[in-house]
Simulated scan of single mutants.
Amino acid sequence: MDDYWRGRFRAMASPCEFFMEEEDETQAWRLLQTAADEAWRIEHKFSRYSDENVIHQINSNHGRAVKVDDEVAHLLDFAQQCWELSDGMFDITSGVLRRVWQFNGGSEIPDEASVKALLPLIGWQHVNWSRPYFTLPEGMEIDFGGIGKEYAVDRVLLRLKQLTGGKLLLNFGGDINTNGRSGGDGAWSIGIENPDHPDSATALLKIRQGALATSGDARCYLLHGGKRYGHVLNPKTGWPVEHAPRSVTVAAPTCTEAGMLATFALLHGNNAESFLRGQEVKYWLRR
Rank of each mutant, 00 (worst) to 15 (best):
Y221I: 12
V250K: 00
T202Y: 12
L170H: 04
H197G: 03
P240N: 09
G238Q: 05
G225P: 13
V232N: 03
N234H: 07
N234A: 03
G183Q: 10
A252Y: 02
N171Q: 06
I192T: 06
P235H: 11
L223I: 14
L204R: 12
L169D: 02
G230H: 12
W239G: 09
E257M: 15
G210Y: 02
L205M: 11
L233T: 02
L212A: 01
E242P: 08
G186H: 10
T178W: 04
D199L: 11
G210C: 01
T249M: 05
N179G: 06
P240F: 15
A218S: 14
P198G: 09
G180P: 07
I190C: 08
R181F: 05
A213F: 06
N194M: 06
A251H: 10
V248Q: 04
K167R: 13
D217F: 08
A203V: 10
L233Q: 07
T178S: 09
T256D: 00
C255S: 04
D175S: 03
T237N: 15
H224R: 08
N179C: 08
L222D: 01
A187G: 09
C220A: 13
P235A: 06
P240Q: 04
I207E: 13
A213E: 02
A213S: 14
R208Y: 10
A218E: 01
L233S: 11
K236S: 08
G186I: 07
C255Y: 09
F172D: 00
A211Q: 00
V250A: 02
P253I: 03
T254A: 01
R228C: 14
T202P: 01
G166L: 07
D217E: 15
A252C: 12
T256Q: 11
G238A: 07
N171D: 14
G216V: 03
R219A: 05
T214G: 04
G225L: 14
R208L: 03
A211G: 02
A218W: 11
K236M: 08
P195G: 03
L169S: 02
K236L: 07
E257Q: 15
I176Q: 03
G166W: 04
G186T: 08
D199V: 09
I176P: 02
I207A: 13
H231I: 08
L205E: 00
A244D: 04
T178G: 08
A203S: 14
P195M: 03
R208G: 06
N179W: 12
P198A: 05
I190H: 06
L169R: 01
S200Q: 04
D196P: 09
R208Q: 10
I192R: 06
K167A: 08
D185H: 12
G180Q: 10
N234T: 10
A218Y: 06
G238K: 03
A244C: 04
G226Q: 15
P240G: 05
D175V: 00
K227T: 14
G225I: 09
S189P: 06
L205S: 03
V241K: 05
I192E: 04
I207D: 08
A211D: 00
N194L: 13
G191L: 01
A201F: 07
V232K: 02
G216D: 01
R246N: 15
F172T: 00
I192W: 14
S215T: 02
D196R: 15
G238L: 04
V250Y: 03
